[in-house]
């Protein structure tokens, strides 16, 4: 793999309508890491994610993917994305599970003429997320957890190097969450870089190997094992409940 960091965020500042959303944020993410980005609501997590996806231009500073600007089309091909609230909930049109995954193929051919190789990849990714045998089933009949697994398969069909997930389990029940995290861990072990964005520090600390705590600027960037209750989490989150969860 290349020696350059997969993601390099350098002195990133974003100002919107006169308000500072991100202030001089710098960090790197290397190939194969499993990173959690944690912070309070409104702390700039989603803004940071959109910058890394190349969908938001920095006011100052830069975001690079394999040394290229994040909005470079080549950079986008390295990235898979699973959004916070999956918009497909509004989508009521008939669509099968394999068709959902096929919409992730970047340069498809004419209608119904995805190449055999591309369909094979679609089915391989469904197999990878534990949805084998459901290809022809309706996407609308799936539970929240199953839908998110299909959306992961969609994100993986372009063979990305890094997978971003933005609060992926906000509408998923507890047992499905455990299966979901097991899947992310397996994908990471197979070499995929995973970046999980969430407001839940307790949960993320159990999953990832490194945590970036963000509230406009980087509050902490450390290994999960270095996290301590001695830190002033109350000040960081501005929410006593989050601290309580962490201290379990």
């Amino acid at each position: 793999m290349a020696s350059a960091p997969l993601i390099q965020v350098k002195d990133l500042s974003i100002v919107r309508d006169g308000n500072s959303i991100l202030d001089r944020v710098s960090f790197t993410i290397k190939d194969g890491e499993y990173v959690g980005i944690v912070g309070p609501n409104g702390g700039g997590k989603t803004t940071l994610l959109l910058s890394m996806l190349g969908l938001l231009k920095p006011t100052r500073g830069e975001v690079k993917v394999y040394g290229k600007p994040a909005d470079d089309p080549k950079s986008r091909e390295s990235i898979g994305y699973v959004p916070q609230t999956f918009l497909g909930q509004k989508f009521t049109f008939p669509i099968t599970i394999e068709e959902v995954v096929a919409t992730g193929v970047v340069r498809p051919g004419f209608w119904g003429t995805l190449s055999k190789r591309e369909w094979k990849r679609v089915h391989e990714k469904l197999d990878l997320v534990g949805m084998k045998g459901t290809e022809k089933e309706s996407f609308h009949k799936l539970s929240g957890g199953e839908r998110q697994r299909v959306i992961i398969a969609r994100a993986l069909v372009g063979n990305p190097d890094i997978l971003f997930l933005d609060e992926p389990l906000s509408a998923v029940d507890q047992p499905s969450q455990a299966t979901f995290y097991k899947l992310l861990s397996q994908l990471n072990k197979k070499g995929l870089t995973v970046v999980l964005v969430t407001h839940d520090l307790e949960m993320v600390a159990k999953q990832v190997s490194r945590v970036l705590c963000l509230n406009q600027s980087i509050y902490m960037n450390c290994k999960t094992s270095e996290l301590s209750e001695a830190h002033n989490w109350s000040e960081f989150f501005g929410d006593a409940k989050a601290v309580h969860h962490h201290s379990h």
């Binding site: 986008r76 669509i95 096929a102 919409t103 992730g104 004419f110």
Partner: peptide, 24 residues
């Protein structure tokens, strides 16, 4: 034109957010 862009239109209809993150 519709057939050439069929999967892209389907992707757009399914989720604009996901479509833009694939660089379309």
């Amino acid at each position: 034109l519709i057939l050439a862009y069929w999967w892209s239109f389907l992707s757009l209809s399914f989720s604009e957010e996901l479509t833009s993150t694939r660089g379309l």
